[in-house]
């Protein structure tokens, strides 16, 4: 046992400086395309290449809808000279349609201690893997007062991944109902936002918002741990939201 103690000490501190500072370590994020200026013809070709319809052709270039983007890289590889700009950021969390719930004082109550129940509503496993990384020494969400709990009874936040399959619909509703108020829902991954590559279909609802109200949306396929962390911080109002769609006009400013 002493051996493990020594091993632990020898390893030292590995934890990311985020959210105090930006984490610039290579590989923390797969990155995602940014809205890019092109002439109309090139924009049409690029938008056609996108298999999920996340790239929207625009007069002056290509907009990106992150609810659909699975960063499959088809818009930056094998495309000849026209390549979408690619950002390596990870603060992707955005507010859901009904995020503005006044008078909850969510931050006052949970700003420093927050319990999270993770729920897999049909995700492929990559989202869960990334969420699980939040507990590893690199991200160590305990330092921020975030804890994963096995029961929704103790949970303040429901972290959902997956497109919500038919069979997971009732468990999702039951889990949400079992959580005490006030509570918030964070949908992570493109599947949980729009169904992603799977749906909507005969068997998947095409997003968590189809079943329960969602407060924070974290796009990505899968969103890297820091993006999930950004979403969680956003849910307790400890950081600023990002946007779900990026337009060319916005890149000019």
């Amino acid at each position: 046992m002493f051996n493990w103690f020594y091993t632990g000490l020898k390893t030292g501190i590995r934890t990311t400086p985020y959210p105090a500072k930006t984490d610039a370590a290579p590989g923390v994020s797969p990155g995602r395309p940014r809205a890019t200026r092109f002439d109309a013809q090139v924009a049409t070709v690029l938008a056609m290449r996108c298999p999920t319809g996340a790239l929207v052709r625009h007069q002056r270039g290509v907009d990106v809808d992150y609810r659909h983007c699975v960063h499959c890289s088809r818009c930056r590889r094998d495309t000849g000279s026209a390549v979408m700009d690619w950002s390596q950021d990870y603060d992707w969390g955005a507010l859901g349609a009904q995020a503005e719930r006044a008078g909850h004082r969510f931050r006052d109550i949970f700003g420093h201690s927050l319990h999270i129940r993770f729920l897999d509503a049909g995700a492929c496993g990559a989202c869960m893997s990334e969420a699980r990384q939040l507990n590893n020494p690199y991200y160590n969400i305990h330092r921020l007062g975030f804890f994963i709990t096995p029961t929704p009874r103790d949970a303040d936040i429901l972290l959902v991944a997956g497109p919500v399959t038919d069979a997971m619909r009732i468990p999702l509703q039951k889990t949400y109902a079992a959580m005490p108020e006030p509570k918030r829902v964070v949908a992570m991954g493109v599947c949980a936002l729009s169904g992603g590559v799977f749906g909507p279909s005969f068997i998947s609802a095409g997003g968590v918002a189809q079943v329960i109200p969602v407060d924070v949306l974290v796009p990505g396929c899968p969103p890297p741990p820091l993006a999930i962390l950004h979403g969680l911080l956003l849910a307790v109002e400890r950081t600023m939201p990002s946007l779900l769609t990026m337009r060319v006009a916005e890149t000019e400013t």
Binding site: G27, A126, E130
Partner: peptide
């Protein structure tokens, strides 16, 4: 995961 992202551009080798 980070090494994979550095070499292949995605942490889970998608795409």
């Amino acid at each position: 995961l980070r090494l994979t992202a550095q070499v292949c551009g995605h942490r889970y080798l998608f795409g």
